[in-house]
Design a protein around this nucleic acid. Structure first.
Length: 475
RNA sequence: GGUGGGAUGGCCGAGCGGUUAGGUCGCGGACUGCAAAUCCGCUUACAGCGGUUCAACUCCGCUUCCCACCUCCA
């Protein structure tokens, strides 16, 4: 089955096929490491994680590059305010970012280039643009890209610049530019930059924001590559400018497919640092939510649709995951611990094959994860029904086969087998109560059984009875 | 002003010109000593007004409201 995605450039759903080598070359705009990332940011990173997982699910390889913006206005301001070196300041947030990615079971990219490690590449690209006559140096030593010299400017955002009004925001930044739409490739050093700066053919300064992505993506993925993604707010100007910089320099198409995810909202508004209405991942973990539950919420809405964050969604996620866990645990409880490879030779019942087929169709249809979850829950429902039937009608081979479908689905979702509450050992005193209760139940002494259940609950454990005996879980 | 995306059952959230989305919550039933879990059933929704069509939540037009981008932003 063919994987299809929505291309922002053409505004159409198109097949995604690698340009070369069976490998999708993917550039994903990463964080500016001046603060802890918030869960709105992580919506983009989980979207990109789902994307790369679906590519792999379809048997293709992925080479993903995610940049780390470690020099810009905000990082410089933060470092200088804190009186520390820029690299020390950003390291804290780089480390935090990677820790957060692990919490959300986001697969690591193949390469995480930092902007400050690629200043020479950026200078070389700017020089090339100056040589080609599409960039110019201003009096203060900054270098700007002249958007009127690049005919395709606006093709990604589909903006017709001849009919744009010049708003207050544009005028404010107009100092040395020939045209309000021109953007900085290189920014001349200013007093407020303090110790931050690099020597260049135009004097001391630092790179503009957009140039790092053009320079680093082409360095690691080639001058033309498959796929480039980011949040919808990056579409313009950031991605538009990346195209201008790259294509003006190389004369080749920069990127085949552009994908953008919609924003996470809170109380109906975009969650953003500038609005101050954000939760970091850490905030939610401290409130007792797991990375797994947060991941579930972030992926269980279509990526091109706005998602309104609410704690009730986390509650729902917790309950939904418990339902999946109970089913998977019941299946694996009958065949012992397995990993994905053990399940490959199992027999797959028709309803499980249908669920996998629906799941595959959903993820290949522009990453429709909500529909994929619907297929997963159909699998759960059928499996529960089969498990409950008397006499039991699932063979060991079928149990393995069904679990195999769960493993297969989880290659994309990353939420079934990841971060499940680990089985904690039952303390001796609770075990003693359980043993007493088993005795009482044998004697059909229900009053004593219920008393012991309350006692066990008081100790922090919940006991449930089934025909296989008592099961305890931490409350 | 320009551009794009929305408004779906108590809540979250898919979808399509005719056929159950799914989850969660609530109600009823089965099972169970009880509870939990599980299964079955129910609460059968598509902002408003027109239009096209044998048929519209789905297409078209208008109206109302919401969100985002238009040089900080995932």
């Amino acid at each position: 089955m063919e994987m299809k995605v929505y291309n922002s450039l053409t505004r159409q759903v198109e097949p995604l096929t690698p340009l070369a080598d069976d490998t999708i070359r993917l550039y994903t705009c990463g964080p500016t490491v001046y603060n802890f990332a918030h869960i709105g940011n992580f919506r983009a990173y989980t979207f990109e994680d789902i994307l790369r997982r679906v590519v792999q699910f379809n048997g293709m390889k992925v080479k993903q590059v995610m940049n780390l913006t470690d020099v810009d206005d905000k990082t410089i301001r933060g470092a200088n305010a804190a009186g520390v070196a820029l690299t020390d300041y950003t390291k804290t947030y780089k480390d935090a970012f990677f820790a957060d990615l692990r919490k959300l079971n986001i697969q690591p990219a193949e390469i995480y280039p930092a902007a400050t490690d690629h200043i020479p590449e950026m200078i070389a690209l700017v020089e090339k643009l100056v040589e080609k006559g599409v960039a110019y140096k201003s009096d203060d030593g900054s270098v700007y890209f002249a958007v009127t010299k690049f005919p395709g400017y606006g093709k990604l955002a589909h903006i017709d610049f001849d009919h744009q009004r010049t708003g207050a925001r544009c005028a404010a930044d107009e100092y040395d530019k020939e045209n309000v739409g021109d953007f900085a490739l290189w920014k001349a050093w200013e007093e407020s930059d303090g110790p931050v700066g690099w020597d260049s053919p135009w004097g001391r300064g630092r790179p503009g924001w957009h140039i790092e992505c053009s320079a680093m993506s082409m360095k690691y993925l080639g001058e033309t590559f498959d796929l480039h993604t980011g949040g919808i707010d990056n579409l313009f100007p950031h991605h538009e400018n990346e195209i201008a910089q790259a294509e003006a320099a190389t004369g080749k198409p920069f990127v085949n497919t552009w994908m953008h995810c919609a924003h996470l909202r809170v109380n109906g508004e975009k969650m953003s640092k500038s609005l101050g209405n954000f939760f970091t991942l850490r905030d939610l973990l401290e409130k007792g939510w797991s990375g797994r539950e947060i991941r579930y919420v972030l992926i269980n809405a279509h990526y091109r649709q706005g998602l309104n964050f609410a704690f009730s969604a986390l509650e729902d996620a917790r309950k939904s995951l418990e339902r999946i866990d109970r089913c998977v645990d019941a299946l694996s409880g009958k065949v012992g611990q397995l990993d994905g490879r053990d399940t490959e030779k199992g027999e797959v019942p028709e309803w499980a094959a249908k669920a996998l087929e629906d799941f595959t169709a959903a993820v290949n249809d522009d990453l429709n994860i909500p529909r994929a979850f619907a297929a997963l829950f159909e699998l759960v429902r059928h499996a529960n029904a089969a498990l409950a039937s008397q006499p039991p009608n699932l063979s060991p081979s079928q149990l393995r086969g069904i679990l195999g479908v769960f493993f297969r689905m989880d290659e994309v979702l990353g939420v079934i087998f990841f971060g499940k509450a680990e089985k904690t050992d039952v303390p001796a005193e609770v075990q003693a109560l359980l043993d007493q209760r088993a005795e009482a139940r044998k004697a059909k002494n229900w009053a004593e059984s219920d008393r012991l259940r309350d006692a066990i609950a008081a100790a922090g454990w919940a006991v449930k009875d089934s025909k296989d005996g008592q099961a305890v879980t931490r409350r």
